[in-house]
Amino acid sequence: MSDVTQQAAQAASDTALAKIATSMSVGGGGTAFIGGLTLNEFAMVFGMVVGLLGLCLQAYQTLHKRRVYMAEYKAIEQKSKREEEEHRAKMGMYQ
């Protein structure tokens, strides 16, 4: 094999090994973290995650309701304005 081919093979091997090492480090750290928790601590973390998800859902729901309310409010204002203009036009016919 030529020198360039050997260098390319070495670089590919180093990249693959680095990726495997990173995956093993992350996996090992995650396992150590989960394994280090007792049942009560795990329940506490799970409860905090569920609480945060509930808070996010509630915030989204509130924002969605506000958007719907504002759209309805604008539609009602436009309808009221249109009816007022029609009324003025009709009353203008009698003058």
Rank of each mutant, 00 (worst) to 15 (best):
M1N: 11
M1W: 09
D3N: 06
D3I: 09
D3K: 11
V4T: 07
T5R: 07
Q6M: 10
Q6R: 13
Q7Y: 07
Q7H: 05
A8D: 03
A9P: 00
A11N: 11
A12R: 06
S13W: 04
D14W: 04
A16T: 10
L17F: 01
L17S: 06
L17A: 14
A18S: 13
A18Q: 14
K19R: 09
K19T: 12
S25N: 05
S25P: 02
G27K: 08
G27A: 07
G27E: 07
G28Q: 03
G29N: 07
G29C: 01
G29D: 03
G29Q: 08
G30C: 03
G30R: 06
G30N: 09
T31I: 10
T31A: 15
A32P: 04
F33I: 11
I34R: 05
I34N: 05
G35Q: 02
G36S: 03
G36A: 01
G36L: 06
L37Q: 03
L37Y: 02
L37A: 06
L39Q: 13
E41Y: 04
E41K: 00
F42Q: 06
F42N: 05
A43R: 00
A43E: 13
A43V: 02
M44H: 08
M44Q: 08
V45Y: 01
V45A: 01
F46M: 11
F46E: 10
G47M: 00
M48I: 04
M48D: 00
M48S: 00
V49W: 05
V49F: 01
V49R: 00
V50E: 00
L52W: 04
L52D: 08
L52K: 07
L53V: 09
L53Q: 02
L53F: 10
G54N: 03
G54Q: 09
G54V: 02
L55A: 10
C56A: 12
C56N: 06
L57P: 02
L57F: 03
Q58K: 08
Q61Y: 13
T62Y: 08
L63H: 09
L63C: 10
R66Q: 12
R66Y: 04
R67I: 07
R67H: 04
V68E: 09
V68P: 01
V68K: 11
V68N: 05
M70G: 04
M70C: 10
A71V: 08
A71C: 08
A71K: 12
E72I: 12
E72H: 10
Y73A: 12
Y73G: 08
A75T: 13
A75P: 08
E77R: 15
Q78C: 11
Q78E: 15
K79A: 15
K79M: 10
S80Y: 13
S80D: 15
S80F: 12
K81T: 13
K81M: 15
R82H: 15
E83M: 15
E83F: 11
E83I: 15
E84K: 12
E84P: 05
E84L: 12
E86G: 02
E86A: 07
E86S: 06
E86K: 09
E86I: 07
H87N: 12
H87R: 12
R88P: 00
R88Q: 11
R88N: 13
R88K: 14
A89D: 10
M91W: 07
Q95V: 14
Q95C: 12
Q95E: 11
